[in-house]
Write a protein that binds this DNA or RNA. Structure first.
Length: 155
DNA sequence: GCCAACGTTGGC
DNA sequence: GCCAACGTTGGC
């Protein structure tokens, strides 16, 4: 799951109550549908920093809720306000995400250098989805490289 | 700031 | 339903 660290970094998420943040601002149907149809509480999340000097995987997190309407869509003052959405018929959903651990940044060049990750959707040319599924083997390859991640996942 | 890539919008 | 125009994302 991509987040701009200027807005919500892995450090921000770890500092939040229960280390949990509501994943506001998704305004793409495919990304929304991943949250609605694919995610379950406890699923592993790679916390990815985008739109910054050093994009890459910055932490390990987990899905902490099922999906529910993103409140920012109803907030006229929010950057994420959607005038076409209404509480009676909400268009955009989110899940809560609990940060588990900050890890050594695995930057884009490092990710691209690994044959095991060559098919990761997030690395696809032109990919703009802020949420993409990760296969079990990709997940294991990444957390396997990080002692901290391995430790937290065994706890 | 540039630009490739892609999603959305809206006229027809 | 097509498709051009436009807006956004996001790496560089």
């Amino acid at each position: 799951m991509k987040s701009e660290p200027d807005e919500t970094s892995i450090d921000d998420a770890l500092a939040a109550r229960d280390q949990t943040v509501a994943w506001t601002g998704v305004r793409n149907y495919q990304a929304r549908n991943f949250m609605r149809d694919q995610m379950q509480i406890g699923d592993g999340v790679l916390f990815y920093h985008s739109g910054c000097a050093e994009p890459g995987i910055a932490g390990i997190a987990e899905v902490a809720s099922t999906c529910y309407p993103d409140p920012t869509q109803f907030d006229r003052k929010s950057h994420y306000h959607d005038p076409k959405s209404s509480p009676e018929n909400p268009r955009w959903l989110l899940v809560d995400v609990r940060a588990l651990k900050k890890i050594r940044l695995i930057g884009l060049p490092e990710m691209r250098a690994q044959a095991e990750l060559a098919d990761m959707l997030v690395l696809r040319r032109g990919n703009r989805l802020s949420i993409t599924p990760v296969t079990a083997s990709e997940w294991h390859h990444i957390v396997g490289k990080i002692a901290k991640a391995k430790k937290v996942l065994m706890d």
